[in-house]
Amino acid sequence: MTPLQILDAAVTGSAAPRIPIFCNLFDQGAREMNLHPKAYFADGACVAEAQLRMQKRYGYDNVWSLQYVGKEAELLGCKKILFADDGVPNVADFVIGNWDDIGTFEVPSDITQHPAWQSVADCLAILRDEVGATRPICAYVTASTTLPAILMGMDKWMELFLLGPTDLRDELLRKCADFVQQHLAALRAAGANVLVYSTPFGSPYFVSKKIIANTVMPWMQKDLSRGGVADVVYYCGMAPFNEVIDPVFAQLGIRSHYISPLADLAEAKRIINSRGLTCGVIDDIKMIHWSAEETRAEVRRIIDIGKPGGHFLFGNGVMPMAVPEANIRAMLDAAFEFGQLS
């Protein structure tokens, strides 16, 4: 079976030789290509090449078209990204400086014509040609209720979201939802077949369940109203969300859930059961200081919880650059060993 078929089998509960094994390596790509992150991320072909090389070396199932989260801010007018030698790029220029800017803030009518899209398109074109028929090609989409955090800063967004005028908040959310719809469609058209929908405000760690139900959920429905949700994964930026899994099934129809390492995985598996895919996620921040044996033991613990009954995937978060390569190998060796199904 191809990795894409193994993933499909896990979602539907049909027979497969093993569980799907995802490994998310982003910033490691620059090191792989021996480039500074700024030069690396500017070249979509380079990002694709690094993704293919790392996948081949380690043998996991997926590749990523994500370049960095700030790419979405660039598509919406951000002029400066702070690149780091040893970690993830940071948005350094907020498109919305104050509330007055919301009225004039505009979403491009076609984001695929924006210069910042070119590297994404180049990356996806190569990945689609090389592995599109056999492997999951992941892409990352920030939800409308979280997108303003990279446009104006999290504290200013939190202030507007909780304390500001609702008409202004909703005007911004409408624009962000328009962007999300466009972004999802553009990624699908370019070849992405697993869309990780990042929605931290859809986690009770960020806001109350009441606010999620009354405010966040309707905007998530709007974000996802076109193109279906069969290829969408619910992800809250590593924050726990077990308490909203049922409403996510009922109101969004999303069947795949990327569970936080801080959440109770056994509980998540019980809630999701055979309705969809439970993704068990290792705490890769702890992997910085763990030994290979500790890493292996944790992989085994996660798979022991999730594998019985099927409908399970093993993955990691956003592998920090400081994680030793020996631990990445130990994680994947253990996942392939303990993830066998037949």
């Binding site: 202030e159 909780l162 304390l163 009770p204 960020f206 806001v207 109350s208 606010i211």
Partner: peptide, 13 residues
């Protein structure tokens, strides 16, 4: 353990 970021923000604000 179930308190949320919005509550922390509002407490301070």
């Amino acid at each position: 353990q179930d308190s949320n970021l919005a509550q922390h923000f509002m407490t301070a604000q």
